[in-house]
Design a protein around this nucleic acid. Structure first.
Lengths: 244, 244
DNA sequence: CGAGAGATTGACCCTCTTCAATTTTTGTGG
DNA sequence: CCACAAAAATTGAAGAGGGTCAATCTCTCG
């Protein structure tokens, strides 16, 4: 009996020409597009560009051409400073928009790589701007997406600035759980696509600390962890860790 | 002989009806507005709303009505979680846009308060959307402003995730220095408008740690600090702290 | 001018890091 | 499909950086 992990996104479903499960397709409804607008919008999307595991979508300094919505798989975005310090700022799941950090300078401040074989749907930033001009609801949706990223960033700053190691790891697991659930997967059983180093880097902790916290959560019967396989066994108590 | 601090923004100059030093006025040039567009734009700005020290511009949960550009003074934005942890996400200086974290939900996720008597210029988000529709270059400028906030946030995450106490404080001082310089003030001598607690909270440190680092920088002849008065005496060496 | 908020400094402590050894998993080539 | 090397994860012990608690000093502002 093989376990079906949440990260095994059913990509096959989306192989059609019009890419109905395309990440951007989620933009049609909230943006309230008419049939005609939808057609225009669809025509600008480059569907299902494949990315191999460890392949980069863009590097630091790359000129911004397209914004991408992840269609399947898992991405990771990392920012760096001159001194060589690096920090992972996000793990992206299907439906999420990637590349916003480049909008201001027109050049990517970060690098984005695939944590597993993935597919992205892209739209050139120029097309998006032009479409937004013609379709106000689309523009609104895009601006709201940027606002959501800013709100998310503030939450991460709070986490990095005021939570202890256990609270950070609990928050991280609960956040993944919520996002898997929102995509129709189990909210208690999934596979972590990133390494302990990557989790630690994202959370501002060392990999050994992450490993120790996981072991502790295991012993405390909050979850069962075997490497990258994670099953939450006490969601209520896990949530309570962050309410302190 | 009285020291003129950078934060003593010459507000008197801007008392005219059309508010020429208005924060939004900086939007005219990059947005390349025509005379007519400029007039439309100006008509939507509510100029120079005063804010007393410690007065709030908005609280958490307040519906988003207007976005503001700080005209004079100093603001501070703070985010909170359910458990009561709080984190200062930004200190705003004249010309900077405030309120973007509310764009997604339509409701403020943060509270913003004045660190000293200040003035803001506001524009309702509805007006901004409508103007943006009519004036593409304005829309572009606004989207770029949101992108800049996202890029800034990523830098803060890196700081919170990977720098030690001295590097954080040095970065903080250098960042203020740069922003004062950009506004025509001294880049080496200015007044910190926030408390040690607020600096610490912003940097993910305790106030005692901030105080100790300042004392250490003092002894190391990197700067001369007396309470809130700060003079950088070795900019080169201060910059080098972050290059390690 | 005086009270309260803010800042400094010291001593001790704790959480997380560092260094190291070992085990487990992954992925590639025979 | 198995073998084996490399990468990843776990666990322990010791150490450091920053936190906590407390006392004192200084400044602000009403």
């Amino acid at each position: 009996m093989s376990t079906v992990y949440a990260v095994d996104f059913p990509a096959a479903k989306a192989l059609r020409r019009d890419c109905p499960n395309c990440g951007f397709s989620a933009w049609h409804m909230p943006a309230n597009l008419t049939m005609h607008e939808s057609a225009q919008f669809n025509a600008c999307i480059s569907h299902r560009r494949p990315l191999r595991r460890n392949e980069f979508l863009h590097h630091v300094g790359t000129a911004l051409t397209s914004l991408y919505v992840l269609h399947s798989g898992f991405l990771m975005t990392r920012v760096m400073n001159d001194a060589g310090h690096e920090h992972i700022t996000s793990f992206s799941m299907p439906g999420e928009l990637v590349g916003l950090e480049a909008v201001s300078a027109g050049r990517h401040q970060c690098e984005t790589a695939a944590l597993e074989d993935s597919h992205v749907c892209g739209m050139t930033f120029a097309d998006l701007e032009q479409l937004g001009r013609r379709i106000p609801e689309l523009q609104r949706h895009f601006v709201r997406a940027m606002g959501a990223e800013i709100a998310r960033d503030y939450g991460i700053m709070l986490m990095l600035g005021s939570l202890n190691a256990e609270q950070r790891v609990a928050l991280f697991v609960l956040n993944l759980s919520k996002r898997f659930a929102a995509r129709g997967y189990s909210e208690v059983h999934f596979r972590l696509p990133m390494t302990r180093y990557e989790i630690g880097n994202y959370l501002g902790l060392k990999l050994e600390t992450v490993s120790r916290v996981f072991s502790h959560f295991n012993e405390a019967h909050l979850m069962v962890i075997n490497g990258k396989d994670l099953e939450i066994t006490d969601l209520v108590r896990l949530r309570r860790i962050n309410a302190q």
